[in-house]
Design a protein around this nucleic acid. Structure first.
Length: 892
RNA sequence: GGGCGAAUAGCUCAGUUGGUUUAGAGCGCCUGCCUUACAAGCAGGAAGUCGGGGGUUCGAAUCCCUCUUCGCCCACCA
């Protein structure tokens, strides 16, 4: 079969993927005795299709899983998707809005149906995209966080934690998104710096002391909340306290009177050092109110973020949006002479992580998880090293969050999500809440009728169970038995708190062990302005576009090679050609080497172990040795999660060593112009097959295709092949040293040819002057290689060339090559060139000499370092001598 | 306010515990080649005061201090 000279990924990829599926290579067997290796996918949100961040994340996972599968582990990569409560609800609501409808127009049931319709489509697309980039997921185990079984697990977790006293209902000031109309956890309410103002407002003292102040000036960024104030506070050691003690003040624009009190929470050097306390609209004020005791918590802003129609709020403000109310309040204060001053003030304001709306702190009843007890084993796991992070620095981020953990608000006022299994008693007198797996008939306390909580659970309250709920928990399945705990989690750093930390907590609480041993954090994919990809900026790259243009392998190679552990990766959507060139070129190169080998084999080559050792030439021993080193480097790099190093090692082995040198060296043997064709074919096949194995985790499609042409019939699929092991007897330092001399001589002659513009077709003579006997014999054995690759008509050994005119090059081992050029040399140009060379060498030599003249260096540096310097010195000196001789020959 | 990361060739980045590096790669650039695996290629080449300053050391891109610029995270100074 002949192969096309251009690699066409589209022509092979889908066929290859189907072969993998048909062979069941990705399906793990829970009954197998092999050591398992487990990765659970960070389930993509069903809101949308995949972007290049997913491309990176999933490629890395696939590299690891394919590698471990080839190492003989029972590898399972569990795929799936996340229902992504708030995010998905928003997407569908936006779609509805385009039809001029709201979710309320549909009603809860119809709306949820509509969401299911949406996730059916996107969920499938996502899984197909993963296949397109080559992900070797175990599709037989695909899960969705809203599957029936999974939902039961979520419900059980809620009930169990409630029974254990770790889930409770409480009234707190929570983060409320007025746009999404739900409460949020601390993590979901992100800080963003906002330019704002600090308004200094005068509160009138109603009953001033003799000579005491008649006003109390308060600094606030949110004047509109003052109608919910219950007191003002000073620091207890504030010298002004005496004159305020026992007084009351009037909230501006109202007749509401509130006392003045003290609290340590006041920062004495901020603002006016007098703080207004608004317990229903600020979490800190809630705490201060609690601490002082005896205060109501007047609510004056509603869930729609509008000023409420309550007596505390001046009539003109009622019904106004909070921001309009702020402006209006300021106007009124100004008119009243109660606005003392306004400062510009930048401060961090929390925003909804889904819609970017400023979050409103609101007093509300919600469900919470008591986190402290859950965090302890999770923190311990990190401290003892049971749980590791790559790169390590993220461990500190995890530790800090775990150490300062706060309770988790898990109830959401949404319709898309796991309904909370709690039932309120409809009897006004009874405040009992029934929490149960099954829908209760009646109130567990008074027997009255019950009504289920309308709220749903935070989407992360289901995701945190992913590593075990996906394997069938709470049932004691064989999957759970075999595949928990897992091994590696590959994800982005921005969900360490949302997801990673909570999975560890759930893992310890429900399974008694960490869900994974290593958390590998990949970087963020950014545009050339270093902005993260986002839909609103439109700067993203669709991985499928890249697959279509250049193939999945080119995409994968680029991502893996570009992603040193945890560093961001920059991609330019306006120049895909340049961004993916390396991967594309490389795929084509591999394709052509494969083509060359296939076309030069006549049936299977002789296996390595049947070749006669004495038939091996220097080049054979060299490439076999280099191959062992590459196995070692790639294996070691993958084990240490240095995927870019693995990519680079196999890249350079195949291109720079196998293709550029070995393939060129064996051509005469393959063509039959020199003997030894059988050996050449055997070594070439062996080495290339090994290289394909090393290549496969990163470039699965192409490697599988070529494998099919070379070894497939004998050895089955590459995806199921075994990882190569280092054969130490093949590591041959002597051959490496000898062949590198051959390479150096060839390059030197080529350089001479190029510099003197010897026409490509015209052969030159070269005179080799060996440094020692070994050098001489190596050259003898490879003389045809050098002659062919450097286009030398005659390679003379050891002739004296002192009085000929030509170019001279010294090799690293001290041997030298002289190329007589006769008329080709223009004396003036040559003198200039040589003088430049001399200058450069003098500089190097000066550096080396300074080092060797330094007694401390000679006495303290390790011997081999010093020896190296001595070698350098000798080599530079020789080169200088050679050049001097040349210059003399030219009459200088 | 605290913490973290980044700064190396025109661009995007490697550089593992300080010394086999005369600081590397890919892309781009320059020169010459359609040499029967590959022009998505081959051969050769130019290009860097390793962000600035100081220090430790025989020796620093690498360790310490400091400054500058960018980015990220955390944080109850309203």
């Amino acid at each position: 079969m002949t192969l096309a000279p251009q690699y066409d990924p589209l022509a092979i990829e889908s066929g290859i993927y189907k072969r993998w599926l048909d062979a069941g290579v990705f399906t793990a067997n829970a009954e197998s005795d092999d050591d398992p290796y487990v990765i659970v996918i960070p389930p993509p949100n069903v809101t949308d299709v995949l972007h290049s961040g997913h491309g990176l994340n999933n490629t890395l996972q696939d590299v690891l899983i394919r590698y471990q599968r080839m190492r003989g582990r029972e590898a399972v990569w569990l795929p799936g998707t996340d229902h992504a409560g708030i995010a998905t609800q928003n997407v569908v609501e936006r779609a509805l809005a385009k039809e001029g409808k709201s979710r309320h127009d549909l009603g809860r049931e119809k709306f949820v149906e509509r969401v299911w319709e949406h996730v059916g489509k996107t969920g499938n697309t996502i899984l197909e995209q993963l296949k397109a980039i080559g992900c070797s997921c175990d599709w037989s185990r695909t899960r969705f966080t809203f599957d029936e079984d999974y939902s039961l697990a979520v419900r059980k977790v809620f009930v169990d934690l409630h029974d254990a006293g770790l889930v409770y209902r409480g009234q707190r000031v929570i983060h409320w998104c007025p746009r999404c109309h739900t409460s949020l956890s601390d993590e979901e309410a992100e800080f963003k710096d906002k330019a704002g103002h600090l308004y200094h407002i005068s509160y009138e003292v109603i009953d001033p002391k003799d000579g005491g102040p008649r006003e109390a000036v308060v600094a606030t960024t949110r004047p509109e909340t003052m109608f919910g104030d219950v007191c003002l506070v000073l620091h207890p050691e504030d010298e002004r306290w005496g004159s305020y003690e026992g007084t009351t003040v009037r909230i501006p624009l109202t007749n509401v009177e509130i006392p003045v009190r003290t609290s340590n929470a006041v920062e004495r050097d901020f603002g006016t050092a007098i703080l207004k306390v608004t317990p229903a609209h600020d979490a800190n004020d809630f705490d201060i109110g609690e601490q002082l005791g005896g205060f109501d918590r007047p609510v004056i802003i509603g869930e729609d973020a509008k000023m409420m129609d309550v007596s505390r709020v001046p009539e003109v403000l009622r019904g106004l949006d909070r921001f309009d109310a702020r402006k209006e309040t300021v106007e009124q204060l100004k008119a009243n002479g109660q606005l003392v001053t306004v400062e510009n003030y930048d401060h961090a304001v929390r925003h909804c992580y889904r819609c970017r709306t400023a979050v409103e702190p609101l007093l509300s009843n919600q469900w919470f998880v008591h986190m402290k007890p859950l965090s302890e084993p999770a923190l311990e796991a990190y401290k003892t090293g049971r749980l590791k992070f790559v790169p390590e620095r993220w461990g500190k981020v995890y530790e800090h969050w775990m150490t300062n953990i706060r309770d988790w608000n898990i109830s959401r006022q949404l319709w898309w999500g796991h309904r909370i299994p709690a039932w309120f008693c409809e009897n006004q007198e009874c405040d009992h809440i029934t929490v149960a797996m099954e829908t209760p008939e009646s109130c567990g306390k008074c027997g009255g009728s019950v009504r289920q909580d309308d709220d749903v659970l935070d989407t992360w309250f289901s995701s945190w169970l992913w590593p075990f709920a996906t394997f069938g928990w709470p049932k004691a399945t064989s999957d759970l038995q075999r595949f928990y705990p897992g091994h590696t989690l590959v994800t982005a750093p921005d969900i360490i708190f949302f997801w990673v930390a909570r999975m560890v907590m759930a893992g310890y609480h429900f399974m008694g062990d960490t869900p994974f041993e290593t958390v590998y954090l990949n970087g963020v994919v950014r545009d050339p302005q270093h902005r993260a990809f986002s839909k609103s900026l439109g700067n993203g790259i669709d991985p499928l576009d890249v697959v279509e243009l250049y193939g999945a392998d080119a995409l994968r190679y680029t991502l893996v090679a570009g992603a040193a552990a945890g560093t961001d990766i920059i991609m330019d959507r306006n120049d895909l050609e340049a961004t993916f060139a390396a991967g594309r070129h490389y795929a084509n190169k591999c394709w052509n080497i494969g083509r060359f080998i296939v076309s030069n084999l006549d049936g299977p080559a002789t296996p390595m172990n049947e070749l006669g050792e004495t038939d091996l030439e220097l080049a054979d021993r060299w490439i076999l040795s280099r191959c062992q080193r590459t196995i070692e480097t790639v294996t070691d790099s993958l084990d240490r999660y240095r995927l870019n190093d693995a990519a680079s090692a196999i890249y350079h082995f195949i291109w720079d060593e196998l293709a550029d040198w070995y393939v060129e060296q064996v051509k005469p043997r393959l063509y039959g112009t020199t003997p030894g064709g059988e050996t050449a074919r055997g070594v070439l096949s062996h080495v290339f097959e090994t290289a394909l194995k090393l290549l496969h985790p990163i470039i699965p499609f192409l490697s599988e295709e070529l494998w099919g042409h070379l070894a497939g019939e004998r050895q089955g699929l590459l995806a199921a092949a075994s990882w190569p092991v280092v054969e130490h007897k093949r590591v041959d330092e002597t051959a490496e040293r000898a062949f590198s001399r051959v390479q150096a001589a060839t390059s030197a002659i080529r350089t001479v040819r190029a510099e003197y513009r010897v026409p490509p077709g015209k052969p030159v003579r070269a005179i080799f002057q060996p440094a020692d006997e070994n050098a001489l014999s190596d050259f003898e054995s490879e003389r045809h290689t050098i002659e062919r690759l450097a286009k030398v008509s005659e390679l003379v050994m050891g002739a004296d060339a002192a009085d000929e005119v030509g170019a001279h090059a010294v090799l690293p081992d001290g041997s030298s090559v002289f190329v007589p050029l006769g008329d080709a040399i223009d004396v003036e140009t040559e003198v200039a060139r040589l003088s430049g060379e001399v200058e450069r060498i003098e500089k190097q030599l000066a550096g080396v000499k300074a080092k060797l003249n330094n007694e401390k260096f000679v006495s303290r540096a390790p011997q081999d370092v010093v020896d190296r310097e001595r070698d350098k010195e000798r080599s530079w000196k020789e080169q200088r001598e050679t050049l001097a001789a040349k210059l003399r020959a030219l009459g200088v």
